[in-house]
Structures are given as C-alpha cells and as structure tokens.
Simulated scan of single mutants.
Amino acid sequence: MISQWIDLTELGSNPWVLPIYTAINQAVGRGATTPLSSKNNALGLHLTTRLNILPRVLTRLSQGLRSIEAQAHQTFQNANRSAPNAPGVALTVSHDTKYLVIADVQSLLTELNTAHELIRKFALALHAHAGHPLAPNARILPSLPAAQRRPEDGVWLRKLDRDRNFVAHEGTLYLAIDISNPASWDFFLRKSNTRQFRRPADYCHLADLRIIVSGFDRWKARLQTHLVDLFNAL
C-alpha cells in the first residue's frame, strides 16, 4: 500500500482540450448543457498526457536518426551497398543509438494509435453530452472538400493501423538506410530479412511515418474545431 508520495509538476501541457473546455463551460453558463462528468474529465486528462508524450518521442527519434546518418556518411564504403541480388557488408553504427531509434519508432506508432483511440472516444462522449450521440463506428468529421484535401488525409490512418498492428502483434522492426537516391539518404524499417522491397507492407519507410504524423495532426486540429463548434451551437 502507498501511504505517502510526491506529485510532480505539470507545466507546458498540450493545450488541445482547452478551447473545447472553454466552449463547454460557456455552454454551461448559458444553461445549454451540464458540466462534464468526472469520467469525461479524466478521459481528457489521459489523452492530454498522450499528446504530451508524442513530441518528446519525435524529438528523441529525430536526434537518433541524425546521429546514425552522420555515422553512416562517415564510414560508408561501396562494399556496404546492398541490392536485391547483391548483398553488401552491413555497416556498423552505435548499437545503443540504433536500438533506441527502433524503440522510439515503435513507441511513436503505439502512442499515435492510442492517442487516436482516446481522442475519438473523447469526441464520441462529448457528442453524447451535447445531445448528438453517434454510433461507435460512425464518422465524426465530414469529408473535406476536394480543394482542401491533402494526400495524407486518406491514407495516414491505414498506414498507422498496418504498422502499429505489426509491432504490437506480429514482429519487430529493424533499421536500415535507403540509399536508392544517392543524393538524399533516408531510413526505413524492415519487417523481415527479405531482399525485395516492392510492397509497402514489407517495410515502414520514414516517409510513411511523416505522412502518419502529418495526417494525425491535421485530423486532430479539425476535430478540435468541430467539437468547439458543436458546443458553441448549443
């Protein structure tokens, strides 16, 4: 049993829920709705903690990737070049940094997936609180007009589900460097020892992670606006 403890300060927290809470409190003041339940307030705290974790993971991941890329550029020789029918000699980099990068990628996928689920659960609870309940699997946001759509809007969640499900239920990623464009190296994470990377399902490219993060951020911003408008209209 814990009888005494020390709480830690919470400063600079992610503000995503604050405009939503402001709109709810204003609606309460107008007599248009009731205060949120303790359960829904707790859900807001949980998702905020997840949103606080994400930028820290991204920062540490970026630092690790920059470190490995610098090491690779310093020691790369043509013998290290691999191709489908011509295996090369594996390049040595800091193992600690490499495994921290792998851990951070897998953590990023998990945190994004969980944050998406918590935010969606929060949004459904607020819809019900506002008197506009939705089915659990219902689309919360309307489709964007064609002129406002970006390529990531239609694919980020599918990519996230695919890669997060792999690390959660099927296997572990392993880091490699894509040198297909000699002028611009990039990273990818292998899902097996295959030497054929024709199918996106066989690997997770850093470009895919950028699409996932960008798509999640756009979806989150749109949903915040939607929830604020929902309570402003009461």
Rank of each mutant, 00 (worst) to 15 (best):
R139S: 11
A72G: 07
A147M: 05
D186G: 13
S143T: 14
I68F: 03
N40R: 08
F166S: 05
L100I: 04
R120G: 04
Y203L: 10
F122M: 08
L65N: 02
F166P: 04
D202I: 00
S214T: 14
L206W: 13
Q26W: 00
A138Q: 13
P15I: 00
E10S: 09
D208F: 03
I53T: 11
N165V: 01
K191Y: 04
W5M: 10
G215S: 06
D208W: 02
Q106K: 02
N78W: 13
P136A: 01
G131T: 06
L234F: 01
R210I: 01
A135T: 12
A123C: 09
G171S: 05
H132L: 05
L109S: 08
A23C: 08
I2T: 15
H226Y: 14
R150F: 07
A23W: 04
G171T: 03
I68S: 02
F122E: 07
N25I: 01
V228H: 10
R60Y: 07
R139L: 05
A201Y: 04
H129S: 05
A90V: 12
S13A: 11
R149Y: 01
D229H: 11
L58T: 10
L227A: 01
D178E: 11
G171Q: 06
Y174G: 06
L43Y: 02
A72P: 15
